[in-house]
């Protein structure tokens, strides 16, 4: 997968709390059998006024042309809770986001983001609130995310963020996780040989 190192872009302030994966990618799009094309359905119920996705909701910040091309999504608490559907991060990536800055993530969603080269960053509430406010006031504000140094740079502020080292390495190199695990085949086979509990 494509390495993720530094992202500098506008950020879309969609900062609600408890945005669940049912909202991010509603069930009617789960019948697809490929990973492609989910971006247009992202947040379907709030982005569109009709079921056919022909009428955009002008009040939805994701539809605001001033944020076009943004690669960073600003989110609230417990982002991505609910269903384990990876279709949600597929939609987020397909829409063009590479980084999500939130007040908190649900566990499965966090793992699913990492598996799709999306960087999930947790920052303190007040910091996210501040970035959200400023990006609302001035949509052209750029946010710079530097994974190597684990920093979010915004105006003159620098916020460091935590990420387990191995997740960071995987994102920086775009590693094939399965290929990597398969290098451990001997250990797996040994485990199988002694695990008679199955």
């Amino acid at each position: 997968m494509k390495p993720l190192i530094t992202v500098e872009s506008k950020a879309i302030p969609f900062a609600e709390n408890n945005v669940d994966t049912d909202q991010l990618l509603p069930k009617q799009f789960l019948t697809e059998i490929t990973r492609q094309g989910f971006g247009k359905h992202l947040l379907h119920d709030v982005r569109y006024l009709d079921n056919n996705e022909s009428v955009l909701n002008p009040d939805c910040v994701l539809n605001d042309p001033v944020y076009a091309g943004a690669e960073i999504l600003l989110a609230g608490e417990n982002f991505g809770c609910g269903s384990s559907r990876e279709h949600a991060p597929w939609a987020i990536a397909d829409f063009g986001f590479r980084v999500i800055i939130a007040k908190g993530f649900a566990d499965i969603f966090y793992a699913n983001c990492l598996n799709n080269q999306i960087l999930p960053i947790t920052l303190p509430r007040v910091v996210v609130d501040d970035i959200v406010m400023q990006c609302r006031q001035d949509p052209n504000q750029l946010v710079c995310v530097d994974l190597s140094n684990q920093e979010v740079r915004f105006n003159s502020d620098v916020f460091s963020f935590a990420i387990p080292l191995h997740h960071k390495q995987n994102l920086l190199t775009g590693v094939d996780k399965i290929g990597r695990t398969l290098l451990e085949e001997n250990a797996i086979a040994e485990y199988e040989a002694k695990a008679l509990h199955i």
């Binding site: 559907r85 499965i108 793992a111 399965i178």
Partner: peptide, 30 residues
């Protein structure tokens, strides 16, 4: 599927995963 924890009622460690991890488990059983 996120409701895999259901099986924990029988004293298992059971949890939901995304599709990339489904692929990982299919390929490696880990």
């Amino acid at each position: 599927d996120s409701h895999t924890a259901t099986h924990g009622a029988l004293g298992t460690l059971a949890f939901g995963i995304g599709t990339s991890d489904v692929e990982h488990v299919l390929a490696t059983q880990t």
